[in-house]
Write a protein that binds this DNA or RNA. Structure first.
Lengths: 266, 266
DNA sequence: CTAGATCGTTTACGCCGTAAACGGTCGGGC
DNA sequence: GCCCGACCGTTTACGGCGTAAACGATCTAG
């Protein structure tokens, strides 16, 4: 029970992610170190072994090299992690991350926000163990809010919305509501993936005994456990996203009718 | 600029937090170790020095004890962190966390969700460095979603909503939407606090030179930077929370009119 | 041919989590 | 009164961590 998706409808973001897994694993390639190769290896390592398993020595080993060799290209472990985050986030600007491009080429701000949201979601699903890092690493400026972490992304967001007629204040409010929405949804989604994985590789005796920890004293939980275990991430993401867009559209129309007003959406 | 609140209206959750800061610091008390004392010290330590500074040796030192002494009461560092999270989260059930009690005593489900949201927000603001832990530690069951991390909290949530007339499916959907909302908002809020703090204790030369990293190539950012720096966390939290409650109320009424229907809110 | 730049290795240091052995200080049964 | 186990903090020790510094080896330009 509680499979990742039901069998008739597949999650389009997940499909895009799975189809992209063609790159060969690194594992003890000859040599020719390089900051880019290091970052790529680090991302792959975290994807496979989890963030806490990443050490300079082990990362060096997967590249066929001693730990200290990495320091020619990376100032230290913290900066390496920053690099990983930047790298993962910047794939949004790649020409096609799956099937659509969103930046600088879109049909209105709603289409833009949709593409952006699904783009970020694909990143999260492609690198579930990296995403918490995207969420928690201190951003470039205090007013930059993960997961839209780069000045370029924020500029693109605000530029698109103001061009579409949002007053500056409404665009900024939209940026904040949008990032909260993305962060909350996606962090919970990747956390759930991680939890499922870490349960699977620890059978630890009876495979069924540990799952239900005597919910007898929690009647509502007992009754709804099957519902709680259902994965509706994709549908809920879509629903919440559309709700947010509706809310923003309402704000935009109000702003257009009464021009100089600045009271709404906090 | 960018003060925490404007000067005419204070953030009630923040005020509640600040007024509660009367407990004396621990710092080399004689002896009498105890799991509770250790957890309290750990929380205080993280609040003051950040999560990454917490080591068994240093925590022992603040308690006037060697690191190994802690292992009589705590299985290891990871379990210590779990204990910290549990402890911080369980303060929600304390008789009065500030000025109101929410559990088992409320005026309808909307009042309950309001009290709960503000209760969790007070926790986040009281322990900004602990909250990311609350968000990221794997929960007790895969379907438990931070920051409502304990079976008790989930039971309370679902029980209250189903008693108020929500069908099970709608209550579960509400639980998911609600936790996404809380996590996104509060994680971003404490991240911002952390970023401001870490900027302040590193003056690093000219106090103004580092703030603006040549935004000249980002026109929308340049134009809205002042707006972006404004802190409207409390108002936005309230706004988004009320919006969510409205959405849930719509769902509830639809469910009441067409009884056996199960199609809405994903 | 040689001098310097380039780049990976080796060695070393201090800190980490924690296993294991140790000692000191009690309170209750003989 | 004495002793002996239980309790509880300390000491010692080990392997792994991030990383500074010294050290080769290998290429390339003059």
């Amino acid at each position: 029970m509680a499979k990742t998706t039901s069998d008739d409808h597949r999650d389009p973001d997940l499909v895009a992610v799975q189809e992209g897994h063609a790159a060969a694993s690194e594992l003890t390639r000859p040599a020719g170190l390089d900051r880019d190769r290091i970052l790529t290896a680090a991302i792959g390592f975290i994807d496979e072994n989890g963030l806490s398993a990443l050490t300079m020595r082990r990362l060096g080993a997967t590249l066929g090299v001693e730990a200290m060799a990495l320091y020619r290209y990376v100032p230290g472990r913290e900066d390496l992690l920053d690099g990983v985050v930047d790298r993962v986030v910047e794939t949004l600007f790649d020409k096609d991350d799956g099937d659509d491009i969103y930046v600088e080429d879109h049909n209105g701000w709603q289409d833009y926000l949709m593409r952006l949201a699904h783009g970020v979601r694909r990143i999260a699903l492609a690198h579930p163990s990296v995403f918490p890092l995207v969420a928690s690493r201190p951003p470039a400026a205090p007013w930059v809010r993960p997961p839209l972490r780069s000045l370029r992304m924020v500029e693109s967001f605000l530029g698109t919305l103001t061009e579409a007629g949002f007053p500056d204040q409404a665009a900024v409010a939209a940026y904040r509501a949008y990032s909260s929405f993305l962060l909350g949804h996606l962090l919970l989604e990747v956390t759930q993936i991680g939890a499922q994985v870490s349960l699977l590789d620890q059978p630890e005796g009876d495979p069924e005994a540990q799952a239900n920890t005597d919910l007898t004293q929690f009647p509502a939980l007992l009754r709804t456990e099957a519902l709680l275990s259902l994965d509706k991430s994709a549908a809920e993401f879509e629903e919440a996203l559309e709700n947010l867009l509706d809310r923003l559209e309402r704000v935009l129309h109000e702003a257009k009718n009464s021009d100089g007003d600045v009271s709404d959406l906090a």
